[in-house]
């Protein structure tokens, strides 16, 4: 069983590469901007939020999905920023 795992979940398998590339390309297609601009936006969001709470930079993800969030139930792309909080301004620590 261990051998099975080792062979089937080899890191850097071409599927993982495909997934990473696809995620990026689908996002940039939807929002119509380059990965560089996405990275810039990420930095800006991080900077703004960091004024108020301490964010775990390594686990900060910015994704764009097709989710339906509009009250009229129209499907529109949605930006989802996931920012784990390390420490709040009131001093509560989470990490």
């Amino acid at each position: 069983m261990v051998i099975n795992e080792v062979f089937s979940k080899k890191t850097g398998s071409s599927v993982n590469i495909a997934k990473e590339r696809l995620k990026l390309v689908l996002i940039t297609d939807k929002i119509g901007c380059s990965p560089q601009i996405m990275e810039q936006m990420k930095e800006d969001i991080l900077m703004t939020v960091s004024k108020y709470v301490e964010i775990s930079k390594n686990n900060f993800t910015l994704t764009i999905t097709n989710a339906c969030m509009d009250t009229d139930s129209h499907n529109m792309p949605v930006i989802v920023a996931n920012m784990p909080i390390k420490q709040t301004n009131t001093g509560e620590q989470y990490v």
């Binding site: 979940k9 599927v15 495909a18 989710a67």
Partner: peptide, 17 residues
């Protein structure tokens, strides 16, 4: 798919929603 060299149908569904 089994050898992790092709995206599985589940992977494709996840991507496309």
């Amino acid at each position: 798919v089994k050898n992790h060299d092709m995206l599985s149908p589940d992977d494709v569904v996840d991507m496309l929603g």
